[in-house]
Design a protein around this nucleic acid. Sequence first.
DNA 1: CCGTATCCTACGGGATACTG
DNA 2: CAGTATCCCGTAGGATACGG
Lengths: 116, 116
Amino acid sequence: MVRDIDQSTKAKEFDALLDTLYVIGGKWKIPIIHAICSANRQRFREIERSVTGITSRMLARELKEMEMNRLITRTVYAETPVRIEYEVTDYCKTLVPMIQSMIDWGMLHRQKIKES
Amino acid sequence: MVRDIDQSTKAKEFDALLDTLYVIGGKWKIPIIHAICSANRQRFREIERSVTGITSRMLARELKEMEMNRLITRTVYAETPVRIEYEVTDYCKTLVPMIQSMIDWGMLHRQKIKES
DNA sequence: CCGTATCCTACGGGATACTG
DNA sequence: CAGTATCCCGTAGGATACGG
């Protein structure tokens, strides 16, 4: 039946939405992506500085999770001292328009609230 | 200085991003908006049914918060029995493209993970 | 139908200290 | 620099029951 097909499509959309919210969920992932993206590649300490308020524990944890989800890559350069760089994947860059729309919307929202 | 202007712009962008994440934050708001939007207006019970897993406590709480943030309106129709409908504001509809991109991205992500 | 009132707990996430 | 190890806490949010 057409109706069944339509329902399962809606259900899949809903699940996809939940997936996305899960992947980008929590307080830090989007800000981290935004930070790495704006410099294209970044070291641990640099990210820590540009994401205001994050602790090294949280950053380490989030980076690990995002690596598992193929959002970033971690590269170790065997220099002395060792240098480690994080880079967003092309895949992750597909999130950029979404993040930009979040920024735009936040600006708008701030205006809206001021007009109380 | 140009550099200061640039930095404060970046800071504002960052804050706007945090604002958005705050407003749409939590587990339920985006799914709720998506549910109401897809029908344009909805009653409490209908929303409850289409947002899988939510409890009435959570739904009531989220709706209240979203009303405060001018994302939805609550209209009471003095019939018997009384009918109450929730509607997204035009303002809220500016979130729709973002939500759609979340859905698209979720679909993509699922593929990506399957290819492990 | 449209919620509110309680109670309770898992866990996201902060603070601090420490290692290779 | 690039993290790990502990300890700890607030609160988002689940379960359940009830009321207008």
